[in-house]
């Protein structure tokens, strides 16, 4: 076993990541339902979601079931009533006696690392507040590897680079692969200085405009700009409007450019992009399944590596 719990992408080496991505590739036909394999038969996964995230919960459920395992769910509503009565520590002590692994989503940062201290079974972090969401980063990397390439990658990240944990984790992981990174955002939502300095020591990173780099890049990763980040509606509309992508924006792009987005989107990617060969965001979401299969297999299979 390479890791017992999956708490943060920072806990993984490049080698660990490559291993998971290869395992995910192996499970892809199983995820697609084209091949049947049940290495996790007889295993039980508990989904503990202390805040709603139907997409992530379903993805884990599909991954577990496709591998022959079973799933019990605690919904956000149930969880909130549990949370009123007892501590997370107690909930984990109890559930870790029922299940063979726990997927945890919790509104507080550090909840998953804390849960791991109280668990007899592996904890997989499915998002802890504004903290970590390692399976998202791994599925992002898998999408890049699958639909583009992690070698000599030129990637632009656009939108909210200040608050988006998805962006921060992905950027850190990309430095392990020596990517060339372009940052596109309104000045008020720029990448935190500290993180910028940290990655600048490792890879080439530049602040840019989309028009300047659109012909160069292999991947355009778009994130949502949230209304709440702006003092007033007018300011928001003005700023958000200039960080949108439509089919016309992509006319000058490389043939094999891929557009990614962690979803759900609002209107930062126009539906006109959906019909282009560049659109990979729905595929990206689906790739969460083989990636989560790989992780579940790694922490649960008796004869895993």
């Amino acid at each position: 076993m390479r890791f017992r719990h999956l708490i943060s992408i920072d806990d993984l080496s490049r080698d660990d990541i490559e291993y998971i991505l290869e395992l995910a590739e192996k499970f892809l036909p199983v995820a697609e339902g084209k091949k049947k394999e049940k290495p996790l038969e007889g295993k039980l996964l508990a989904n503990l979601f202390f805040e709603p995230s139907t997409r992530t919960r379903m993805s884990f459920e599909v991954a577990m079931k496709r591998l022959g395992g079973e799933v019990i769910n605690m919904t956000a509503q149930e969880a909130s009533s549990v949370a009123k009565g007892e501590t997370l520590a107690d909930t984990i002590e109890v559930v870790s006696k029922y299940a063979d692994a726990i997927v945890l989503r919790h509104p507080l940062e550090g909840a998953a690392r804390f849960a791991a201290e109280h668990s007899d079974v592996p904890i997989i972090n499915a998002g802890d507040g504004a903290g970590q969401h390692p399976t998202q980063t791994l599925l992002d990397l898998y999408t890049i590897k699958k639909e583009s390439s992690l070698k000599n990658l030129k990637i632009a990240l656009m939108g909210d680079l200040k608050y988006s944990r998805t962006v921060h984790s992905l950027i850190k992981a990309l430095t392990l692969f020596g990517a060339e990174i372009y940052l596109i955002s309104p000045p008020s939502l720029a990448l935190p200085e500290e993180l910028f300095e940290e990655i600048r020591e490792k890879v080439r990173v530049e602040v840019a405009e989309l028009e300047e780099v659109i012909e160069e890049i292999d991947v355009l990763y778009v994130t949502r700009i949230q209304k709440e980040r702006f003092p007033d509606e007018e300011e928001y509309l003005k700023v958000a409007g200039s960080y949108k992508v439509d089919a016309k924006t992509l006319e000058r792009a490389k043939d094999n450019l891929i557009v990614m987005h962690p979803l759900p989107r609002v209107d930062e990617i126009d539906v006109s992009v959906d019909r282009t060969k560049h659109a990979k965001y729905f595929q990206q979401t689906f790739y969460g399944v083989p990636v989560r299969m790989a992780i579940l297999y790694e922490v649960l299979a008796e004869n895993g590596s």
């Binding site: 501590t87 507080l108 940062e109 550090g110 909840a111």
Partner: peptide, 13 residues
């Protein structure tokens, strides 16, 4: 200093 940190909750931590 992070108000949303698990160490600032009512957990035994």
């Amino acid at each position: 200093p992070n108000r949303n940190c698990i160490t600032n909750s009512r957990e035994p931590i």
